[in-house]
């Protein structure tokens, strides 16, 4: 049921708005749109000399799931490179039931979305944008 979709952890992640906003001087920026629902994510990153994320900022015009995902991502992105972000993507995919295996904080919060296929892209959109920014 949808009411169970908006569980406290997801709502808390969205409200935390971790990393929300624009970076003043980003190394890379990427934008991703979901043409089906119109959600839009812009991710800024500042990278250190070894391609690891030193700072991240996101602007989300999208639903609560997309906002929560961007917030979750920002909370664990610092210090990771492209491979490290790819690991997070697998974690999100596991939470959504699209890959098997255990899932971890913070993406484990999205387990209720496993039952809502039409909303899963909302969770993955910020990860897609960050992948683009790092590629």
């Amino acid at each position: 049921m949808s009411d169970q979709l908006y569980q406290e952890r997801i709502v808390a992640l969205a409200k935390a708005k971790t990393g929300a906003g624009k970076l003043a001087d980003p190394t890379r920026t990427a934008r991703r749109d979901n043409p089906l629902c119109g959600d839009r994510v812009v991710i800024d990153v500042r990278l250190d000399g070894e391609g690891r994320i030193a700072e991240i900022g996101h602007q989300v015009r999208g639903c609560l799931l997309c906002q929560a995902s961007a917030s979750a991502l920002s909370s664990v992105a610092i210090g990771r490179d492209a491979a490290g972000i790819a690991e997070l993507r697998h974690d999100a995919e596991r939470a959504l039931g699209r890959e098997s295996g255990d899932t971890h904080e913070p993406f484990s919060a999205f387990a209720p979305v496993a039952a809502h296929k039409s909303r899963q892209e909302c969770v993955l959109l910020p990860l897609e944008a960050l992948k683009d920014a790092l590629s």
Binding site: M1, S2, Y6, C37
Partner: peptide, 13 residues
């Protein structure tokens, strides 16, 4: 303060 998709999802419940 609430995205339309979240309104619609809540309405589904």
């Amino acid at each position: 303060g609430v995205h339309p998709h979240d309104v619609a999802q809540m309405l589904d419940s």
